[in-house]
């Protein structure tokens, strides 16, 4: 049987006075691509933060690689909406930014080696950014910066990659390039969890969907069972039979 990567059981989280997630359940296996769809404020980014341990959940359970997060942190990569919030005057090269994520394999106090630089360059090659390795990160376009941040997540060779709106604020051509890179990484065996405001792009890439509906419940379905029109009606609050 395919290796189980993440199991989310009855996950519940609320901000003061507002329930954001209530009894969320899903399981992903190696090579799955989960697209999380829903309106702003529906809890998509919150779910990503709960999986990463950036927020404590109120009830339920998240199991990663059959164990708890702290034991498998190095097997998980994360790409956030950095292209929008990034400080463009920060004096760092692309290589320095990507290399920064090698801490889990280096530990405290140890200096970077030629092998570390080679690993960072390999990660940059995966996103087609090798030639920019010595450029200042702030001198790149938003799309190029986001490809660098994907490389940064890839440098530690993660088996599960979480992406929170990685294409927000980026031009259409760059979005197509980034989605193509992400699909290629997924076909190479990396399990993906991704939120994206661009529903058609996500439907094109994902094979499983977690849809947060307007009326406060969620649906976990196989992508092949749904058309874009059907997804729109679910988003509007009409239930479907659950799969997977």
């Amino acid at each position: 049987m395919n290796e189980e990567i993440i199991r989310v059981e009855n996950l519940t989280f609320e901000y003061p006075d507002t329930a954001v997630l209530k009894n969320v359940n899903f399981t992903l296996y190696k090579g799955d691509f989960l697209g999380i769809i829903g309106a702003n404020g529906a809890g998509k980014s919150t779910l990503i933060k709960l999986i990463l341990g950036l927020l404590p959940y109120d009830a339920g359970r998240i199991t990663l690689f059959g164990t708890e997060l702290s034991r498998v942190r190095s097997r998980i990569g994360y790409v956030s909406q950095k292209a929008n919030s990034f400080n463009s005057d920060f004096p760092a090269t692309v290589l320095e930014v990507v290399r920064a994520n090698l801490f889990s394999s280096k530990g405290l106090f140890r200096r970077y080696t030629k092998e570390d630089n080679a690993r960072a360059e390999h990660a940059l090659a995966l996103v087609g950014m090798t030639e920019y390795k010595d450029k200042l990160i702030g001198s790149l376009s938003g799309g190029q910066q986001q490809r660098v941040f994907i490389a940064r997540a890839l440098v530690s060779e993660p088996e599960l990659l979480l992406m929170d709106e990685p294409t927000v604020g980026i031009d259409a051509a760059s979005v197509r390039e980034i989605m193509s890179i992400i699909k290629k990484l997924n076909s190479g065996g990396i399990t993906m969890i991704m939120t994206n405001h661009d529903t058609p792009a996500l439907l094109d890439a994902a094979d499983k969907l977690l849809i947060f509906c307007e009326h406060g419940y969620e649906e976990f379905v196989n992508r092949s069972d749904l058309s874009l029109e059907r997804v729109s009606s679910i988003l509007a609050g009409k239930r479907v039979h659950k799969h997977g």
């Binding site: 990463l52 950036l54 942190r73 190095s74 998980i76 994360y78 956030s80 950095k82 920060f90 760092a92 930014v97 920064a100 994520n101 090698l102 801490f103 889990s104 940064r152 530690s156």
Partner: peptide
């Protein structure tokens, strides 16, 4: 550069 990413790794 990025406190959140540093914590996650």
């Amino acid at each position: 550069f990025d406190e959140e990413a540093a914590g996650l790794c």
